[in-house]
């Protein structure tokens, strides 16, 4: 596999030093500006930018350290205990992990269900979001209206949207089956059907998510593609499809990659719709991995075991992400990089 490097390779060190020196040279004289020691200046341009960057992300860092890192580490320790939250945790070593892999009837099926959900939700969701972004990128009259309409479901409160769809998918008097009956089709029980329950939840997610943040990211990616590339392609005689195939798509691959990684992560976390619409049923049909984790933690109060499930999921997610990163060099094109 060919490795890639930047088409604008970093300047030689001597040149870089000269640039840094140039950037800081006059600061010694400017009033109110940090004075630097003769020789190598401490507050270089790069350091200033780095400092500014840290200042900008500091709210997130503080929040992460204060509110998330502690529970994360605590859950790692709790995963090695039997802990019902009322009594103190008891150390059990790796028993929870062994139980998950060997003695929990719901562990593997729930993981499979989550993966099935991902397999349905991610490709269709990304494709539809991309299609919507392409439509909005046409700069036609009424684009702003359509952008708002597409985005609207994603700002609808999740619970309200799910209840809305539960009614639509109601098998006996729901709008969906009624519509199908008009064309002579007898619809399934949707959320009440073992076979259709997960596709139904995928449908609900697609309705709420395709026009949301994912579409906006794609739209930003599309609008970041230089117009000159399209002009050059047009001059070379490329039609709309070829421009899309050979300009848009390659230039958008970093965005597609980014969106894919995040969508997989979010899809594997599927929980809310199952919690509200199906309660994990019928007959465990929507008993997803995170649902299993939640039940263990917050209804059966097996907090130690639930923590172990959380860390197993963490490993699964890391594995997924690692594989995607390994594969990205085969299809992701970064502007400004070239093959060496």
């Amino acid at each position: 596999m060919a490795s890639r490097s930047s088409t604008n390779p970093p300047a030689p060190r001597s040149q870089a030093n000269r640039l840094e020196a140039a950037a800081t040279a006059d600061t010694t004289a400017a009033p109110g500006v940090l004075l630097v020691a003769p020789g190598r200046p401490w507050m270089t341009l790069r350091r200033r930018e780095m400092l500014a960057g840290y200042v900008f992300i500091s709210p997130w860092i503080v929040g992460y350290l204060a509110l998330q890192l502690g529970p994360v580490l605590a859950s790692l320790l709790l995963s090695l205990t039997a802990y019902n939250i009322v009594e103190p945790p008891q150390f059990v070593g790796t028993r929870n992990y062994v139980t998950a892999f060997t003695n929990d009837d719901l562990f593997w099926p729930s993981l499979r269900r989550s993966l099935y959900y991902v397999a349905l939700d991610v490709p269709v969701g990304i494709l539809l979001s991309l299609l919507l972004a392409l439509l909005l990128n046409q700069r036609l009259r009424g684009t702003n209206l359509f952008r708002t309409l597409f985005f609207l479901p994603s700002v609808t409160p999740t619970v309200a949207a799910i209840f809305f769809w539960v009614w639509i998918m109601q098998p006996d008097w729901g709008l969906l089956n009624w519509t199908l009956s008009l064309v002579g089709v007898r619809g399934p029980a949707w959320l009440g059907s073992i076979e259709w329950a997960i596709p139904s939840l995928v449908t609900i997610d697609l309705w709420t998510a395709v026009g949301g943040t994912r579409m906006v990211i794609f739209l930003a990616g599309l609008q970041g593609i230089p117009r000159e590339l399209y002009e050059a392609a047009a001059i070379d005689g490329a039609g709309a499809w070829r421009r899309f195939r050979h300009v848009t798509l390659p230039m958008l691959t970093p965005t597609i990659f980014f969106v894919t990684v995040l969508t997989v992560i979010f899809a594997l976390r599927v929980f809310t719709s199952a919690y509200i619409a199906t309660g994990g049923g019928p007959a465990y049909a929507t008993w997803f991995y995170t649902f299993h984790l939640f039940k263990q933690a917050f209804q059966f109060f097996s907090m130690g075991y639930a923590s172990a499930l959380g860390w197993i999921l963490m490993v699964v997610l890391l594995a997924f992400t690692f594989v995607q990163f390994r594969l990205q060099s085969r299809w992701v094109h970064y502007e400004g990089e070239r093959q060496s």
């Binding site: 998330q68 994360v72 995963s79 860390w311 992400t321």
Partner: peptide, 23 residues
């Protein structure tokens, strides 16, 4: 950009792990 995306995605996974672990 590759580096940024990598870090962003990994932080996303890390954050998710935290959220899930404390689900």
């Amino acid at each position: 950009r590759r580096g940024f995306l990598s870090i962003a995605a990994l932080l996303g996974v890390g954050t998710l792990g935290g959220v899930m672990a404390a689900c």
